[in-house]
Write a protein that binds this DNA or RNA. Sequence first.
DNA 1: TATGAATGAGACTTCATTCAT
DNA 2: GATGAATGAAGTCTCATTCAT
Lengths: 200, 200, 200, 200
Amino acid sequence: MAKIERKSIAEIRKEEIILAFINVVAEKGFSKATTREIAKAADCSLGMLHHYFKNKDQMIRESMDYTIAAYKIDFDKMISDYDTAEDQLKAFINSLIELDAFNIAWAKIFHEFRASTKIDPENIIVILKYHDQDKAFIGNIIKRGIESGEFKDNIQESTIDMILGSAYGILSLWFIDQNTVSLKEMGKQHSEMVINFLRR
Amino acid sequence: MAKIERKSIAEIRKEEIILAFINVVAEKGFSKATTREIAKAADCSLGMLHHYFKNKDQMIRESMDYTIAAYKIDFDKMISDYDTAEDQLKAFINSLIELDAFNIAWAKIFHEFRASTKIDPENIIVILKYHDQDKAFIGNIIKRGIESGEFKDNIQESTIDMILGSAYGILSLWFIDQNTVSLKEMGKQHSEMVINFLRR
Amino acid sequence: MAKIERKSIAEIRKEEIILAFINVVAEKGFSKATTREIAKAADCSLGMLHHYFKNKDQMIRESMDYTIAAYKIDFDKMISDYDTAEDQLKAFINSLIELDAFNIAWAKIFHEFRASTKIDPENIIVILKYHDQDKAFIGNIIKRGIESGEFKDNIQESTIDMILGSAYGILSLWFIDQNTVSLKEMGKQHSEMVINFLRR
Amino acid sequence: MAKIERKSIAEIRKEEIILAFINVVAEKGFSKATTREIAKAADCSLGMLHHYFKNKDQMIRESMDYTIAAYKIDFDKMISDYDTAEDQLKAFINSLIELDAFNIAWAKIFHEFRASTKIDPENIIVILKYHDQDKAFIGNIIKRGIESGEFKDNIQESTIDMILGSAYGILSLWFIDQNTVSLKEMGKQHSEMVINFLRR
DNA sequence: TATGAATGAGACTTCATTCAT
DNA sequence: GATGAATGAAGTCTCATTCAT
């Protein structure tokens, strides 16, 4: 979607609706993201929604796809600022955790979505695609770290899953309990712990 | 669960309904856990549910309380089998991860519940109570570990949050992607990583 | 019911339930007078209610009958204190209006009942019986007033209806708007107005 | 009712539903005025009702407001036909009482509504607004009567309440007992009684 | 293309009534 | 006689989806 330079009106409309959906989910949560609310946020009619999306599930899926695509770019850009695998990994984990306004929306939508109780097989595929992207990212950093000698060389595939899951988890914990828990502190320690674990 | 020796019929019925609710949530997810479905699972009428529970929210909360109470016992029992803080912590993390049939239902209901977007302030209190229980548990183990000299003595409060969050996270990851990801492997590495981080 | 000196247990139970019903209606209004609430107020089981009363409607009817019978006595007693028709009529209207704690319950139950939206033909019969009692009462006073020369002699049957209706009305007005409206003042003026109208 | 020249479809539909509600209440009483029944009377779906009204209570309130607004016009028109305060007051009381088919629905809905035990504070406000309108109306007539010398000059505020309450009351009596009681006769005598009371 | 009125399935909840114990 | 667990019909309300305009 983001690859095509010249967008048709239809694509623009779809994008508007998708952004509206993301905003509603981020602000009010998944359960409040009714078609009415989304249409209102997108400043369009209910009929428009169904004109561009077969049904709500399809809209959800495309919203996920859109978000994944949008973030792929950011990640790649981010990595270029750091030299060592250690710093790159830290930066990645921090990117999950040092949330600015936009990141919060992004993180929350994934949190809500992953947690969504309406997950049907089709939707799960999209989530897994997102996971795969993050895994590939971590995987690449680790690979480079092994090659450069920063990390130990017996790191398993499942370690990536573990790192990713644990990072998601501290984020989820914070979403539920923002009063007691410090995301920044947790993030800092998590990075340290992970690096500690990977280092030779 | 086994606290009260002689249970009244009302208590038995409530327990039946709670177990039915837990099973429905575990099997079909939160959004499918309609009152109708729960009544069906509990093999009773719709009216019955409201005979024992003021409304669905109260039923949810009591189900959470029930589960929390049930697991408190298991945790306490579990700890007594191990001597070192390290082993105790490993055992605790494993208890989150080496899921048997009952544990899966338990873990999933918490996962779904934590994730539920319909969470109202009352419900969050219940979740936080559960978090607090887990935090206190980890905190005690760490305290003993520091006292015995197993763990370094500059461990912060937020470390507990981080450990708990990361443990929840790998579980959540597995719930979404049970095919690709090995819970056992992740758990093993997570334990190792955490212990590594705490050790002097 | 009140005529029989020695009451059976069944009659006592019925009376208890009826009084409970009256109290619930008076305190919480007709719509809150559920069978559960009544059983609770009567300190008996739900089953008891239906053991003594075929259904709720029958219970309502018998409660009305009970109240009518109970009040017949009070009215007759009241009249004996006054000599002139004018004073008797004033006293009657005041009895509707100078409400003590018990009268409020009584008045409110009739107000609620007359106003009840569930009026079926059977229930209306009971209300009309109550109206007839009041009409007969007013009629007798007027008759004596005509005979004694206090009142003009061309008073029609419908005048009685009009007096009764207007008295009910100011009571109903007060039930709705107790803050702005003075029942005492209205009652005083109403009496005066009626007497004025009847006097030769 | 005829205030707005060009009505939107939404306004027309709302009006249709309101009229359907009024008719159902008038014909079958408040308790039978279920959303299903109203939808049936308005020849629309259940969902439609909630498309135009947030909930049933709002529908009730708007129906009251509608009726109040509709009648305000009639009252103002009516007054212009009479010169003396006496005739105006008689005309007003008659307007409550000489019921044609439409008036019956109107009067009954007020009777039912005033009587409704489900009255919440919001609803009471609407009723009191209606009462205030009638009180202001009577008050103005009386004021003119005093100024013109027709009425005595020591008439109190509470007299208005009393007149209004008594007028409502004879109407309520008739609603319950339409067979025995003559509304016309009662109304005639009530007017006479009231005028008698106010005259110098 | 665009709208939003309209639908209907299904959610939660209440309550009079029944019936096994 | 007495209980209250259990029922099921009916009520209000929500929401994704459709369709005439």
